[in-house]
Design a binder for these strands. Structure first.
Length: 460
RNA sequence: GGCGUCGUACCCAAGCGGUCUAAGGGAUCGGUUUGCAAAACCGCUAUUCGUCGGUUCGAAUCCGACCGACGCCUCCA
């Protein structure tokens, strides 16, 4: 089955067709680096990774750009609070973002352009919009003129008839929906400012993304991603600028991921109900977090709870045990030994990234093979099919990596206790054996007794 | 107020017109297995998909109303 994606621009699932035959250009709205990221942020970043991996699985070469917003009101607020200076703050949270991305097995993007490195290009971009009559200067603020742009409302049904409020009037806005491209310098901005022909100031968020995307990927891209909250107004405003200027389609597909919520309320820093990723990583493995995030469809809300993370952790155990039993020595797929289930798995992912269904299919497959393991009828073909499926599954879900395969070596201490236990069991000294099992568990290893041997598994 | 999304078992979560007496995971309770466990396997747990109507030969799936939850319209992943 060919890849289908739900396009927010048309509100429909569509067959995916790339601009050039085997390449996909993909722009993803990245973090604003002013604070520690929460799990909701990473739900979206893991979603980007999902999109990318599924594209790769479909043999596309993906060029992905994730921007880093480091010019922003919140950053300025934080700097003004005196906690950290500008450079220190933005560097710190940029590093945290990259570090967590790595921990969560998110594939590196090709570029992570920072807003502050491209301000001259933004000034130039705004100038072109003014020249074309799509933007106007009001007291040093530059606004996009939504009235002069007929395609405003790509993502939302709106009527641009709402009245201007006092604040709008004070700013000199012409229409309520007009948005800022350039913010004139204010005292609180301090030295976070750039010179332009309209006076000092800084580019506004929507312009930042418009410029970073077109500058790094070109004027026409395949996929633009972001969290659902960015759909309006951020993406609406971003696309309006680019398409006004170019008079051509900017991105063919717009993908938006749903929120992670805490107690039925969106997790967000302004609501103060966030769950910090660093904290979670102290309690759960990155694989658990990743599996948790991928076990709901990306367009459904996820209600966060520890119970669900525990469930995900158990799922992981089950998967890992299966992998242990089948045995695997490479994560490279071979395209041979493809089972029907694996094909269904790939189809599910190609059907708008249906990870929950794909997971279900994988578990179904595990159950079938476990039955065979149970009654000792696992064939060579079964093993090869399993290895192939595991490799393909792992490429998307990342439950373990090549290095962890090698790190499974059993410490000699554990090994010693285990063989002693084996001896005790053979002599039917059950109490001794059970005691040893307890000791082994304390060291972080579980024992599974097989027909005439025992298997050691690392506790997760 | 305007614009949207969602409501499937004890919990989570797919399915979006017929193969649905509804996948998969977790949990519970029985059973097989085991020296005992653990794991694995078998079985039980939704004739029902928020409620009420309608369309259809046929609906969890389409339409309408209502109830409930959430999101966007201001910063937000």
């Amino acid at each position: 089955m060919s890849l289908k994606l739900y396009n927010s621009a048309t509100s429909q699932k569509e067959d995916f067709k790339s601009l050039s035959p085997n390449q996909v250009l993909m722009y993803c709205c990245g973090p604003t680096v002013y604070d520690a990221p929460h799990l909701g942020n990473f739900r979206t970043f893991v979603f980007y990774d999902l999109v990318k991996r599924v594209l790769i699985q479909n043999n596309f070469e993906v060029k992905q750009v994730v921007n880093i917003t480091d010019i922003d009101d919140k950053i300025i607020d934080k700097v003004n609070s005196g906690e950290m200076d500008y450079k220190e703050l933005t560097t710190k949270f940029n590093d945290v973002f990259l570090q967590h991305s790595k921990t969560l097995n998110i594939e590196k993007a090709d570029e992570y352009p920072k807003t502050s490195d491209h301000v001259p290009a933004m000034i130039d971009f705004i100038k072109q919009l003014i020249d074309k009559g799509y933007a106007y200067n009001a007291n040093g603020n530059i606004f996009f003129d939504t009235e002069g742009y007929s395609r405003y409302g790509k993502f939302i049904n709106i009527e641009n008839t709402e009245a201007l409020d006092d604040e709008d009037n004070a700013l000199g806005k012409k229409n309520q929906k007009d948005f800022t491209l350039w913010k004139a310098w204010k005292e609180e901005d301090g030295d976070i400012t750039w010179e332009s022909e309209w006076g000092n100031g800084r580019p506004a968020w929507h312009t930042e993304c418009a410029v970073l995307a077109t500058k790094s990927l070109g004027n026409a891209i395949d996929i633009h991603c972001g969290g659902i909250d960015l759909k309006f107004p951020h993406h609406e405003n971003e696309v309006a600028q680019v398409e006004a200027l170019l008079d051509a389609t900017f991105s063919n597909y717009w993908l938006h991921s749903e929120h992670l919520t805490l107690e039925e309320e969106k997790m967000s820093k302004s609501l103060g109900n966030t769950v910090n990723v660093s904290d979670l990583l102290g309690k759960y493995s990155p694989e658990t977090l990743r599996l948790f995030l991928l076990s709901s469809h990306y367009r459904s809300k996820i209600y966060f709870s520890d119970k669900k993370l525990d469930d995900s952790s158990k799922m992981l155990d089950k998967i890992n045990r299966f992998i242990e039993h089948v045995g695997i020595n490479t994560l490279e797929g071979s395209n041979a030994n493809i089972s029907d289930d694996y094909t269904r798995f790939l189809d599910a992912l190609n059907d708008d990234l249906n990870t929950p269904e794909a997971l279900g299919i994988f578990f179904d497959f595990i159950n079938k093979k476990n039955k065979k393991i149970h009654d000792n009828s696992l064939s060579e073909k079964d093993i090869k099919e399993s290895q192939e499926f595991i490799a393909g599954f792992n490429f998307i879900f990342c439950v373990f990596n090549q290095s962890s395969l090698k790190n499974q070596e059993i410490p000699s201490e554990v090994q010693k206790l285990a063989s002693l236990r084996e001896k005790m069991r053979n002599q039917q000294k059950w109490e001794e054996a059970d005691k040893l099992r307890g000791e082994i568990e304390k060291l972080g290893w579980l024992i599974e007794d097989l027909k005439d041997s025992q298997k050691l598994l690392k506790k997760k």
